[in-house]
Nucleic acid binder design. Structure first.
Length: 554
RNA sequence: GGCCCUAUGGUCAAGCGGCUAAGACGCAACCCUCUCAAGGUUGAAUCGAGAGUUCGAUUCUCUCUAGGGUCACCA
């Protein structure tokens, strides 16, 4: 007659260490009082999700604020869903947002003494823990097939019972160890399940840093802790890893709340102290009037790469996410004129409890503010590296016309009333593109959008007069009065007000004159400040463009 | 469906028994103005419903309703 010990030794012949040995190998971290150890634990199944960035941002922030540690653990136990190279990509994207961990799986290497940080390399550790659970009678092999499980579930559904592997439905929990041993020896596939001692009719209460005490039915499910491929399931790996990596606060999405009772029982059975938990609200979007979780498949904005490609500065997306995390962040930015989240004091208690709708307008707002705070040089450098990958045309012009580019980007930049016309880098080219001669010619090849109500011979005269008389040495307001004079010479009122008082005495007003010049120089009715445009283009280029425009008027 | 979480304008939200119920984004109007952007001023817009408790409920309690989450050898 075999017993649990023989069974355990047969399944784990290589395991001689115990949990106590692991406790020694991974000792408590030597950190100052109040320091939090947090982590980001993604599975390498695709690009970084916006919700994951949100979680990382908070976890990173909490660790940084408390002078603790933020580390990354790769949860790569689902070999079927794994996407080659996505682990590295995840780390790269975190780095883009400057929330990359300093410990853990870092893409090309593991750093830290609580590793390995890839779950696929921690098999030995899990096996030690499972063996010990088996020895204590808290784990057992289960031979149920997927079909059997499905059958059970159908019966349960029919009887309106709670589905799952528990109580009398846990048919393998009472298999005699010697029978189990024989079946394993015969090569029958099996998983290892946890033997729950819980009662569904009892409630357990645990504390959530954001929501306060949450009380849920005790776990009574004999969940799988080791899959047939020998790798652990999430629940088990969570308990083991977060314990031995000495996580103090587990920060994760609220979808985990309902499985918390499983985790409580697991920690207890393993003899581990429970970490603190903080369950973050999820980011959702409106779809046909219904809120739903941002979906990687349906929503481009679910993927962080969407914002990188779209040309949003990392600081802007972070500021937006922080405003979701702590709504007082927005007031803080207004007071401090800073969007640097490092200087902001984050607090779990100020966190929203409800899922939030992703708000593109708000992101755009933050992004405009953030970009407006960059110097022209800074913006130019960022545009350069962004366009390298995502906007070939802009990249080419930025390199060819560096001086002009910086000057163009510097128009009305800085100060209290700075221009805020870009919410992302892709909006830059359409606005400043006309400064580049090649682009100007391209725009103008479709014709000039002159005001058709004004006779083209008049436009021509005004433009020629302007080319001849314009003084590039004047200051802005003085210069503009010369434009008024120019208009007056050709029968245009000096202001809209004057024009309105006697519309039949004038051909138009100074705005019309400015528009002619603008259309001639920019090929468009809108542009940044005309005076600045003239200064940047310079007399030769201005005259060249005027001539081109005049020629087009025949 | 069971369980859990949540509930203030379109969105993000202050509020913690008595307020004309903050603020921000967005929207609208006006002002400024050479266009655009910015800026300024103003405006429209909120306590899911019903019972209690109370002199008094957005605020406390219960019920309902709605939305979300979760019920895998996925995380």
């Amino acid at each position: 007659m075999a017993n649990f010990e023989e069974l355990a030794n047969y399944i784990f012949p290589d395991i001689s260490e115990t949990i106590a040995d692991l406790e020694k190998k991974y000792p408590q971290r030597n950190l100052p009082e109040g320091a939090e150890v947090t982590r980001f634990a993604p599975s390498p199944t695709g690009f970084l999700h916006l919700g994951s960035l949100f979680t990382s941002l908070v976890a990173h922030k909490v660790a940084k604020d408390t002078k603790g540690v933020f580390y990354l653990r790769l949860e790569d136990t689902d070999t079927k869903r794994e996407i080659e190279g996505s682990g590295e990509e995840l780390v790269r994207q975190l780095s883009f947002f400057d929330v990359a961990p300093k410990e853990g799986y870092l893409g090309d290497k593991d750093v830290g003494s609580y590793g390995p940080y890839r779950q696929s390399e921690r098999e030995h550790i899990y096996r030690i823990c499972i063996k010990e659970l088996m020895l204590k009678g808290r784990a057992y092999p289960c031979f149920c097939s997927a079909e059997q499980l499905e059958e059970t579930r159908e019966i349960q559904e029919m009887n309106k019972e709670i589905p799952g592997y528990y109580g009398d439905y846990a048919i393998c929990r009472n298999i005699d160890p010697s029978d189990a041993l024989a079946r394993i020896k015969a090569g029958e596939p099996y998983v290892i399940r946890f033997r729950s001692l819980g009662n569904h009719n009892n409630k357990v209460t645990f504390h959530d840093e954001i929501r306060g005490d949450i009380s849920i039915a005790e776990n009574d499910l004999d969940i799988v802790i080791m899959k047939s491929d020998g790798l652990p399931t999430y629940h088990f790996a969570h308990a083991v890893d977060d314990h031995f990596m000495r996580t103090t606060t587990v920060i994760r999405g609220e979808e985990w709340i309902s499985s918390a009772p499983i985790h409580l029982e697991l920690f207890d059975a393993l003899g581990f102290k429970l970490p603190r938990y903080a369950h973050l609200p999820v980011i959702m979007k409106l779809d046909n009037g219904n809120k739903r979780k941002l979906s990687k498949r349906k929503d481009p904005e679910a993927s962080v790469s969407h914002f990188i490609e779209g040309g949003y500065p990392a600081e802007a997306l972070k500021a937006y996410l922080m405003s979701i995390a702590n709504s007082n962040f927005e007031e803080w930015t207004a007071e401090n004129k800073s969007y640097n989240i490092d200087d902001f004091k984050f607090s779990f208690s100020k966190m929203s409890l409800d899922g939030v709708l992703f708000d593109q307008d708000k992101l755009d707002f933050f992004s405009k503010e953030v970009i407006a705070l960059f110097s022209a040089e800074e913006l130019c450098n960022r545009l350069l590296s962004w366009s390298e990958k995502f906007d070939a045309k802009l990249n080419q012009f930025l390199k060819k016309y560096q001086q002009i580019s910086v000057k163009a980007l510097n128009i009305e930049r800085g100060g209290e009333k700075a221009r805020k016309d870009f919410s992302n880098y892709s909006q830059v080219y359409p606005i400043i593109g006309f400064f580049y001669p090649e682009r100007y010619e391209e725009i103008v090849s479709n014709g000039y959008p002159f005001n058709e109500a004004i006779d083209s011979s008049v436009i021509k005269e005004v433009l020629l007069d302007f080319a001849k008389s314009n003084d590039y040495s004047l200051a802005n307001d003085v210069w503009f009065s010369t434009v008024k004079e120019l208009g007056a010479r050709h029968g245009f009122a000096e202001s809209n007000k004057i024009f309105k008082q006697a519309p039949d005495q004038y051909k138009g007003h100074v705005g019309d004159v400015a528009e002619m010049i603008r259309v001639a120089l920019c090929g468009a009715k809108n542009s940044p400040n005309l005076y600045c445009v003239l200064q940047i283009l310079g007399q030769d280029e201005v005259n060249r463009r005027i001539n081109l425009a005049v020629t087009s008027l025949k």
